[in-house]
């Protein structure tokens, strides 16, 4: 601390304030430096493409560079009038409903079962979670063989019971259900693990108190376990809905959108329009329409969760 005669005396508080400001500036800079690698990648690979995609959606841009130039809202108009776009969107929503409900309910059931304290708990935990670690290609390999109408395991077992063979992936009536079953087997482990962790966090005293009050196991399930799991359920529903809406890999590899477009998801339609149909502008327009939908879903869920936690 130094004071000069001509300048007004600097108080101790002022000095520390300056020092703090300087330290703070230094800290901010350091913070930015650490965030830089991520920030650069984020801007390069997310922000720039997203903004560029928005621009593309107003152009007639194609893979070959032909037909570029602004076309206004023509792509959006075409997309909104396109029956295939609506069909793919419908398929995606249908898949989301079909997959989210069992992925929540069944994973809770599995977690409850394991939490009962069965012998060999680690083995149960492992076997329910293991498929989640597999790559989508591997999962699809297994399942497309099992679904094979003539040589597949499933129809083989069905035949033992005298049932007629089912073309699991080729029959328009069951193809989507088959995709959902595969997805269920593959991804349920994640939800299961989160539920299991949440279950183990419920304080034991609550069960003791409930038992003293004469509550049975079912009563405890509905009055303690499920309410205590609400935050986990809300989180899982959010994650699940968003994951299901952007379904692509397993459908692309299992059915390639078939039969008759019955399993084509919106992301697959975007891929087809852009990469095999060459029309980047049109395909960007569909992705932005879809983006709006996802934002709306996310906002709605945010509202619901907020209202719950406020209540």
């Amino acid at each position: 601390m130094s004071t000069a005669i001509d300048t007004p005396p600097v108080t101790a508080e002022e000095v520390t304030a300056q020092g703090k400001a300087r330290a703070k500036r230094g800290e901010t800079l350091t913070g930015w430096a650490f965030a830089a690698p991520f920030a650069v990648l984020f801007v390069l690979f997310l922000v720039v493409p997203a903004v560029y995609g928005l621009y593309l959606s107003f152009t007639g841009e194609t893979l070959t560079g032909a037909g570029s130039g602004l076309v206004g809202f023509a792509n959006y108009g075409e997309a909104l009038r396109d029956p295939d776009m609506w069909k793919s969107l419908g398929n995606t929503l249908w898949f989301t409903v079909l997959s989210t409900v069992p992925l929540i309910v069944l994973s809770l059931a599995l977690a409850l079962l394991v939490n009962l304290g069965l012998p060999g708990r680690w083995l149960w935990r492992l076997s329910f979670f293991l498929p989640y670690l597999l790559a989508s290609t591997v999962v699809v390999m297994f399942w497309s063989w099992m679904y094979n109408p003539t040589l597949g395991l499933i129809n083989g077992v069905l035949a033992k019971f005298g049932a007629a063979p089912v073309a699991w992936l080729q029959d328009p009536k069951v193809a989507m259900v088959s995709v959902v079953i595969t997805t269920l087997w593959w991804t349920i482990g994640f939800n299961f693990l989160l539920y299991l962790a949440a279950l183990q966090n419920i304080p034991e005293q609550q069960f003791e108190a409930a038992a003293i009050d004469g509550a049975g196991k079912w009563r405890q399930l509905f009055s303690i376990v499920i309410p205590q799991l609400t935050p986990t359920t809300a989180l899982l529903v959010t994650l699940q809905v968003l994951a299901s809406l952007k379904v692509f890999d397993q459908i692309y590899m299992l059915t390639n959108g078939g039969p008759a477009g019955k399993t084509r998801s919106i992301v697959e339609y975007i891929y087809e329009s852009g990469f095999t149909g060459y029309r980047f502008g049109f395909s960007s327009a569909i992705s932005y329409l879809f983006f709006v939908l996802i934002v709306l879903v996310a906002l709605a869920q945010y509202k619901i969760i907020n209202r719950r936690s406020a209540a």
Partner: peptide, 22 residues
């Protein structure tokens, strides 16, 4: 431009006539 081996053209054919074949 949209026909040929491995193109969507053949997928579109399948989408519409696979149930005829079946």
């Amino acid at each position: 431009w949209f026909t040929g081996a491995g193109s969507d053209f053949q997928n579109y054919f399948a989408e519409n006539v696979q149930n005829v074949f079946l």
